[in-house]
Design a protein around this nucleic acid. Sequence first.
DNA 1: ACCTGAACACCGTTCAAGT
DNA 2: ACCTGAACACCGTTCAAGT
Lengths: 242, 242
Amino acid sequence: MPKQATTEKTGRQRRERGSISAEEIINGAFEVARRDTLDKLSMPELAKHLDVGVTSIYWYFRKKEDLLNAMTDEAIRVVFEQLLPVEKSDWKSYLRKHFAKTREIYRSDHVLCDLGMVRFGTYSKEAVHQVFKVMEDILEMLIETGFTPDSALDVYESMSIYTRGSILIERIQLSAKAPTIDSQRQGRLIDPVDMPRLAELIKTRSLSMVTDDDYEAGVSHLMTGFEAVLRADKRARKAVQA
Amino acid sequence: MPKQATTEKTGRQRRERGSISAEEIINGAFEVARRDTLDKLSMPELAKHLDVGVTSIYWYFRKKEDLLNAMTDEAIRVVFEQLLPVEKSDWKSYLRKHFAKTREIYRSDHVLCDLGMVRFGTYSKEAVHQVFKVMEDILEMLIETGFTPDSALDVYESMSIYTRGSILIERIQLSAKAPTIDSQRQGRLIDPVDMPRLAELIKTRSLSMVTDDDYEAGVSHLMTGFEAVLRADKRARKAVQA
DNA sequence: ACCTGAACACCGTTCAAGT
DNA sequence: ACCTGAACACCGTTCAAGT
């Protein structure tokens, strides 16, 4: 048998120099993660998918963590690409739209969510910069509307915490292996005698807290609060001017 | 050498029948998790801590997941034990206190947080029941105050999503190995020319969104919204009565 | 009935070597 | 400069066996 550049174990041709790239690895990693979950993305699995030796990946990413960081950067890029530029016309409808869009993007892609939401504690300099840039634009818009800078930041943070909370809570519920506490199971846990209010409410609503209506209800409460603050800020400014 | 009931590998005495218990294992698991992180709790590590063969644990918990579920049940028990009973005096101050307390409990213990917050998708029947019981009491209180049942649920859910969001966001930031985007790092990323508003705000505030003040600001916005809904609900009721 | 080590499949990572 | 398998330490879990 003639000597070939195939390994006995894998039966695979040895790849040429330069036949792999960081970009290719990242793309492959997204594919593997999307097939299942980011949690189940492993280096051996990724290597198999890319038809590469496991250790070859380590030439481009010295640790799995480095690869995940690169994926996170890419995820943030994809997310911000889809976000709409700030409109200065109607602050309320823009705020609603901006955060609803954020929620929509992360809801539609669990890998994006696990990277951009769950791993945001490890954002790179570039990723943080993108976040800050959008934040700055929104703050500027709110301040022009009449909010004080401090109030504007409070408004942004409230919407951000609430929206991210909603996204994370839904993600956690969906990632649970066991069937989520759906209406069926909820119903069986609620004794109408012990819990008459919940028993009544569950006839028409879910208690999952992650429907569009649930999200919107909280946003409406916040908006009422924002409006009150705006009125107070404008009043205070007039008092100073007078 | 006389034959002893010690194994050659571990040099450890073989444990007597009944010398381990599920409770002991759970307690040990909490100890190991608290030394580091829940993520790093492993069966071999736990066995070593308990001075038991690894496989012995599997007699009491057939999978690691089962052990984690038992730990979650215990965590929920501990959390709800600390929560105050519902006061019917002042709905606003009670709501604030209840959710602030929840936040305080989870903030003070990352293991409790990783179990009770991050794993709430896998709550047992008993755990869900405890959650629902408190929810029922709060709903009843709100309805007695004058909220419609639907409004009361909206109020509860808004506070729950916002508070859990705040808790999860802080947990994610703290669990990041890399130093969190602290004021120092934030400052270097914010060019005063590009981002004048943020540059100004960062002089007096952090952008982490997880301080007590940040949390309270959002709660205040929500409260304003709740008050408006309560007025509307009372008005509608009067209109029907007339 | 309860406790045990050996063994297996899988993982992340290092190393020394190929080309 | 880039790609590779062998090897290591660690993990969750099963199994067949001890007491």
